[in-house]
């Protein structure tokens, strides 16, 4: 599907065209968001095959139900919500004995971890190649518990607002905030082990 002529077009215009059955407009929306949806699906399912299913189901459902998209939220927030529901269904099917949700009980935040207290190098990312750094950052995110992971990806990587993240995940704003805080602190902890300034590791690995 050649869509180059649509690349500069505003999202709401594309959605309007897609609702008029313009398949090229819808394909352009898919092209804009497919990588982000695939990344999110991989983060939630932690399984490439499931993530691919989620990706397909998300855009097929979005196409099918495009007339239900109200335009009050961003199109991306709307498809994230579909993708999250599809991904959770996958997880439930995989672990059929146990229900899974992003609302699963998580500890309450009393033990917010801050054991690694060390300053970082200036521009620590310069020490790594793009691939190395990408791998490092990815595996740190992967090590977060699922309820924190999706909040972090949407809020801090995809740059959704707190309210949009809450809407997309079906969570309350306070729940998003408390998970985001814990995700950020856990990632800070992990990255500090890698990025701390040499000689500042007196408190390391306690």
């Amino acid at each position: 599907m050649a869509v180059s002529s649509l690349t500069g077009i505003d999202e709401s215009a594309l959605v309007a065209q897609a609702r008029e059955n313009d398949t090229r407009a819808f394909a352009e929306l898919v092209r804009r968001y497919e990588s982000k949806i695939f990344r999110l699906a991989q983060h939630i399912t932690q399984n490439r095959e499931d993530a691919e299913d989620v990706l397909q189901e998300t855009f097929l459902k979005a196409y099918e139900h495009l007339d239900q998209f109200q335009g009050q939220s961003k199109f991306y927030t709307w498809i994230v919500r579909i993708a999250v529901n599809q991904a959770l269904m996958k997880l439930r099917r995989r672990k059929s004995d146990k229900s899974v949700s992003l609302d699963e009980s998580i500890d309450t935040g009393e033990d917010t971890v801050t054991r690694e207290i060390a300053a970082w190098d200036e521009d620590p990312e310069q020490r790594y190649s793009r691939e190395e750094l990408g791998g490092l950052l990815d595996s740190a995110v992967q090590s977060l518990a699922p309820p924190y992971r999706s909040v972090f990806v949407l809020r801090d990587i995809d740059d959704l607002s707190t309210e949009e993240t809450a809407e997309a995940l079906g969570l309350s704003v306070p729940a998003v905030k408390s998970r985001l805080l814990r995700a950020r602190l856990q990632l800070r902890e992990k990255l500090t082990r890698t990025f701390k300034r040499k000689g500042d590791d007196a408190f390391a690995y306690l």
Partner: peptide
């Protein structure tokens, strides 16, 4: 270091599909 953590992730492009 938390500020730097957020900064390093912000806008990290997804791998092309």
């Amino acid at each position: 270091t938390t500020r730097k953590t957020i900064k390093i992730y912000k806008g990290m492009e997804p791998y092309p599909i």
